[in-house]
């Protein structure tokens, strides 16, 4: 079945070329930095409202109500690099950790040319450049995914896991199951499709 045709003007294009679906849910925009030419698709949820504050909200669900108590020091919750792509229904959520009895949020950093698949949930500390997160995958809190790593569809990367560059992880919990080829990330080939992906977004 062909997907329903996107309504005209589905995407808002910012000055730096980010294409953001009007049907995405972005919370706490002042705590989110998009590097430009990034795509955020419909129904994606980006939780910029979950950032570190002096007085921490204990319940993350009520965090938006307690957000921005001190606007003079805007802390960054989520950074996304250039040509990254957040698919439909994906969730970006800053990682959190219980540290000395206090539950606090840490920033989520996403690099350039990153792909986050449909319905994936990302709570990593960082996703490097050219990282691929497959459809329906979950990247646990404080995980570190290095450049050119590949998370297979449906994988569950456990909290705190480090995935080295060029490695493919899959399974629940995710393990390293292989490596991508040396040509991975070459422009236009597997891992190097970010520019093409960006260009076709919003064209009807």
């Amino acid at each position: 079945m062909p997907p329903p045709k996107t309504a005209k003007g589905e995407y808002i294009e910012t000055d730096t070329g980010n294409k953001i679906s009007r049907r995405s849910q972005i919370h706490g925009t002042q705590h989110i930095i998009l590097g430009g030419k990034t795509v955020i698709q419909a129904e994606a949820v980006i939780r910029g409202d979950l950032f570190r504050t002096a007085t921490l909200p204990t319940d993350p669900n009520n965090a938006s109500a307690a957000a921005a108590p001190n606007p003079s020091t805007p802390s960054v919750a989520i950074t996304v690099g250039r040509y990254s792509y957040i698919s439909k229904s994906a969730i970006l959520r800053p990682p959190s950790r219980l540290h000395r009895g206090i539950h606090s949020f840490y920033p989520l950093k996403i690099g350039d040319h990153v792909f986050v698949g449909e319905g994936a949930v990302v709570e990593a500390a960082s996703l490097g450049n050219h990282v691929h997160v497959g459809k329906g995958a979950a990247v646990g809190s404080m995980a570190i995914i290095k450049d050119y790593a590949y998370v297979l569809d449906g994988a569950v990367v456990p909290p705190g896991m480090v995935v080295p560059s060029w490695c493919i992880v899959g399974g629940r919990p995710a393990r390293i199951v292989g490596e991508v080829g040396e040509g991975y990330g070459v422009e236009g080939a597997e891992g190097g499709m970010a520019r093409e992906r960006y260009r076709v977004v919003g064209r009807t």
Partner: peptide, 19 residues
């Protein structure tokens, strides 16, 4: 048990004033 990475953590996490 499950092959996920293990984290080093302290048992006395609840008492925040004892780093």
């Amino acid at each position: 048990v499950c092959t996920a990475p293990l984290a080093v953590s302290t048992i006395e996490n609840a008492t925040g004033n004892a780093p």
